[in-house]
Design a protein around this nucleic acid. Structure first.
Length: 416
DNA sequence: CCTCCACCGGAACGTGAGGAGT
DNA sequence: ACTCCTCACGTTCCGGTGGAGG
């Protein structure tokens, strides 16, 4: 008699595994070569080149949508720069890499920089998370840099998110960093700013722009052919021979990602998920069906994830929109939404926020892509936001139902 | 053409958590 | 124990506004 998992495990034993090395599909993976990005690499390389001779390179701004290879190119070039310096016995430039979307604030950006170049407090301890005046950290960083003549190249990934937070705050950080050069005796800082917002420049303080935007490098989206090329390169690394059903699989992944503005990260993610689906099902090859299914899985997962991690107040607001939408309302306006929200907040016994705040929460939900809003005028009847659910009612319902408190309210509302 | 609604969205400020130094 | 930081999250106040209806 056959035991349940026999077949599945047999496949692993027989070496029919689908993946050879799935890390090659991860977004942080830096491959040996970066196809279709020669121009950008050469540009950045020639700008940073002087660092090898101890001369400060110009600052660079890189633009391009998500998944166009900005980050990986920056990493690649810096890696090459450092290893070249080591090979030729030159004083290697310092490098630091900060993702501004995750790090976020002036203080924390400085802390990250300090950590990455081993700058420490005067007593030798690590710079603390918080608590110190920001100026003090600047000093720590400056002292470290000045203690040893060096060139620090800082990559600020997703710089635009700094500016979107608090007006002024982000500019302060960038201004502070660019200005630091004037205060340093022996060392220089050069900045590579990476932005996926093309309008980023407009938000930038002119003083910052003039120094930060000395050089600009544009990353255009990959087209379907280029995506295919990239996928083929990675497939060879990540999958076992013959694990991919037919050429149609790669073409499909390329085509789907090309629709998503040529996002290579998304393409790789899709491919990896498709592979995992095939693996889990015990199939020998990845087929186009796996790819299509993977697309759905990814979409569902990201929505589920964002909704689940929402703060309670935002959930309540989203829930209010969901309730109104379930009643068959096509157009939901801020006022009604706020009324429903107030009831929900009361039932949940959480604080009822002001309409001003709720209005902001609605905008946040919009940015997360869970709802669509547009400001419209109803003439005599005022100006307001028109709100629509951007995802299916069913899906939101299922996820919100997971929250016991909300599902109880849903039942109450139904019995009305 | 003008009015005036119902909100938008900027600005300034308050609170309290989390942490450091003294 | 007390002062001094940053920062997330809210509140209060208020000037601004597109367009239906008079």
């Amino acid at each position: 008699m056959e035991k349940p998992l026999d077949k599945l495990f047999d496949k692993f034993l027989q070496g029919q595994a689908i993946f050879r090395d799935r890390t090659a599909l991860r977004p942080t993976y830096v491959p040996e070569s970066l196809p279709y990005r020669d121009d950008q690499m050469n540009r950045i390389g020639s700008i940073l080149g002087p660092a090898l001779r101890g001369a400060p390179p110009s600052n660079i701004l890189c633009y391009g949508k998500t998944g166009t290879g900005k980050t990986v190119v920056a990493r690649y070039v810096l890696d090459m720069l450092v290893s070249k310096a080591k090979d030729s016995g030159v004083n290697a430039p310092l490098t630091a890499f900060v993702n501004c979307r995750i790090v976020g604030t002036n203080y924390r950006v400085l802390k990250r920089l300090c950590d990455q170049i081993d700058a420490t407090m005067p007593d030798g301890s690590e710079v603390p998370f918080t608590g110190l005046p920001t100026d003090e950290i600047r000093e720590v960083l400056k002292n470290k840099l000045d203690s040893n003549p060096s060139i620090l190249t800082v990559v600020l990934d997703e710089v635009d998110s700094l500016l979107k937070r608090d007006a002024g705050q982000g500019n302060d950080i960038l201004y502070g960093l660019t200005r630091m050069n004037g205060e340093l005796e022996n060392s220089r800082i050069s900045i590579i700013g990476i932005s996926n917002d093309l309008t980023f420049k407009e938000m930038l303080d002119p003083r910052v722009l003039s120094t930060l935007g000395e050089e600009e490098v544009i990353f255009s989206p990959y087209n379907a052919v280029e995506l295919k090329g990239i996928l083929e390169q990675r497939v060879a690394l990540a999958f076992n021979t013959d694990a991919i059903g037919d050429e149609g699989v790669i073409n499909l992944v390329g085509a789907l990602a090309a629709q998503e503005h040529g996002d290579a990260r998304r393409a790789l993610d899709l491919l990896r998920t498709a592979g995992e689906l095939a693996e889990r099902k015990g199939d020998e090859k990845v087929t186009q069906n796996h790819v299509r299914e993977a697309q759905k899985v990814i979409e569902r997962d990201t929505i589920t994830e964002t909704v689940k991690t929402l703060p309670m107040q935002s959930k309540a607001v989203l829930f209010a929109v969901y309730v109104l939408a379930s009643k068959g309302q096509q157009n939901i306006f801020t006022g009604e939404c706020y009324n429903v929200y107030s009831d929900i907040a009361k039932s949940l016994s959480i604080d009822t926020l002001t309409q001003r705040r709720v209005s902001d929460l609605i905008s946040e939900l919009d940015m997360l892509g869970l709802i669509n809003t547009s400001v419209i005028s109803k003439g005599r009847y005022g100006r307001t936001k028109r709100i629509k659910l951007a995802v299916s009612k069913k899906q939101i319902g299922v996820i919100l139902d997971d929250d016991v408190r909300l599902s109880n309210i849903a039942r109450d509302l139904e019995s009305d």
